[in-house]
Deep mutational scan, measured.
Amino acid sequence: EADPRLIESLSQMLSMGFSDEGGWLTRLLQTKNYDIGAALDTIQY
Rank of each mutant, 00 (worst) to 15 (best):
I43L: 13
A39S: 08
M13C: 05
E1N: 10
G22M: 07
Y34M: 06
D41T: 11
W24A: 04
I36H: 03
S11C: 10
T42H: 15
T31N: 15
E1K: 09
G22Q: 05
Y45N: 15
I7C: 09
S11G: 13
L6I: 06
Q44S: 13
L25P: 01
M13W: 04
S9C: 08
L28I: 09
T26I: 06
R5I: 09
S19H: 13
F18I: 06
Q12I: 15
G23N: 07
A38R: 09
T31C: 12
M16Q: 05
W24C: 07
N33F: 09
R5A: 09
A2G: 10
T26E: 05
D20E: 03
L40Q: 04
D41H: 14
Y45K: 10
M13I: 07
A38N: 05
A39W: 04
A38I: 09
A39I: 11
L25S: 00
S15K: 14
G37W: 15
T26A: 07
A39Q: 01
M16K: 06
G17H: 02
I43D: 02
I43Q: 03
W24S: 05
L14D: 03
D41V: 13
A2M: 14
F18T: 01
Q12N: 09
Y45W: 13
T31F: 14
L25E: 01
D35Y: 04
T31D: 15
L10H: 02
Q30S: 10
Q12M: 14
S19D: 10
T42K: 09
A38F: 06
F18L: 07
D41M: 15
D41N: 13
E8L: 10
P4V: 11
L29G: 00
E21Y: 09
D35T: 03
F18E: 01
R27S: 13
Q12Y: 13
I43M: 08
G37T: 14
A38Q: 11
L40C: 07
R5T: 06
L25G: 00
S9W: 08
D35S: 10
T26Q: 06
S9R: 03
R27E: 13
L6D: 01
G23C: 07
D41C: 10
L10Q: 00
L29N: 01
M13D: 00
M13S: 00
L10F: 04
G37L: 14
L6P: 04
L28C: 07
L29M: 04
D20Q: 02
I36G: 01
E8V: 12
L25K: 00
S15M: 12
L10D: 00
L25W: 02
I36A: 06
M16L: 10
A38H: 08
S9I: 08
Q44A: 10
M13K: 01
E21R: 07
R27I: 13
L14R: 08
A39K: 02
I36D: 00
L25Q: 00
Q30F: 10
G17D: 02
Y34K: 03
A2S: 12
Q44D: 11
Y45A: 14
L40K: 04
A39L: 08
G37E: 13
D41K: 15
G23P: 00
R27F: 08
T31S: 15
E1T: 13
L40H: 02
T42V: 10
E1A: 09
L28K: 00
A2K: 15
D20Y: 02
Q30Y: 10
L10R: 06
N33V: 06
T42S: 11
L6H: 07
F18K: 00
L14V: 08
A2D: 14
S19V: 12
Y34I: 01
Q44K: 14
D35P: 01
L29K: 00
E8M: 10
T31M: 15
I7T: 12
L25R: 00
L14W: 07
I36F: 03
S11Y: 12
S9T: 11
M16T: 02
G23M: 05
Y45I: 15
L10M: 08
L14P: 00
I43Y: 05
L29V: 02
D35I: 07
S11E: 14
L28M: 05
S19W: 08
G17F: 03
D41I: 15
L28W: 03
I43K: 02
S15A: 10
D20H: 01
F18W: 09
L28S: 00
L6T: 03
L14M: 13
T42M: 10
Y34T: 02
L28Q: 00
S11V: 12
M13F: 08
W24F: 05
D3M: 05
Q30T: 14
R5K: 10
R27H: 15
R5Q: 10
A39E: 01
F18P: 00
K32R: 09
I36Q: 04
L28T: 02
E21W: 08
G22T: 07
S19N: 15
L14Q: 06
M13Y: 02
P4W: 12
L40W: 06
L29T: 02
